[in-house]
């Protein structure tokens, strides 16, 4: 009779056992903040559709210290999302070849982050220009 008895190890808590996985769980966790922010915008949009009184109620809620604190937390986590999104990008996209040479991973990450800065400034400039 065979004495084989392969032992399967449990996976519970796998992500706590390696700093690489802890980082992975943090950047995956940024999704909760993206979702929360999406819901805040969704509620705002519904208020807007309901009329001026409802919209002003939403605006007042946005000025509450807790709302500001919440948005600071969201800002931190969504910025972390930007950073991790472009950090992973060299692994997730097909190799980029320019002038016969493969673009280095750090260049791709850098270009993504630079695009974020440019897009952010354009967005802020547009909003500033349209509302001043």
């Amino acid at each position: 009779m065979s004495k084989r008895r392969p032992y399967v190890r449990p996976m519970a808590g796998w992500w706590r056992k390696n700093p690489f996985f802890v980082e992975y769980m943090i950047h995956e966790g940024s999704a909760l903040f993206v979702a929360a922010y999406g819901v805040v915008l969704l509620v705002g949009l519904v208020c807007l559709a309901q009329g001026e009184a409802a919209w002003n109620g939403w605006l007042a809620a946005m000025k509450h210290p807790l709302a500001l604190l919440f948005h600071l937390a969201v800002l931190a986590m969504i910025s972390y999302h930007s950073w991790s999104w472009f950090k992973i990008m060299p692994k997730t996209m097909p190799p980029l070849v320019i002038g016969g040479k493969r673009v280095a991973p750090a260049m791709i990450t850098g270009a993504g982050l630079a695009a974020t800065v440019v897009a952010s400034l354009i967005l802020l400039g547009l909003v500033w220009g349209m509302t001043r």
Binding site: L41, H71, L72, I78, S79, L123
Partner: peptide, 27 residues
Amino acid sequence: AALLGPMLVFITGIAAPLGFILAPDAM
């Protein structure tokens, strides 16, 4: 979210409610 998320959160959640950089009645 990576390209526009941080600035959107800053605008709708911080700058506009506080009237910081943007006009207080921006929204």
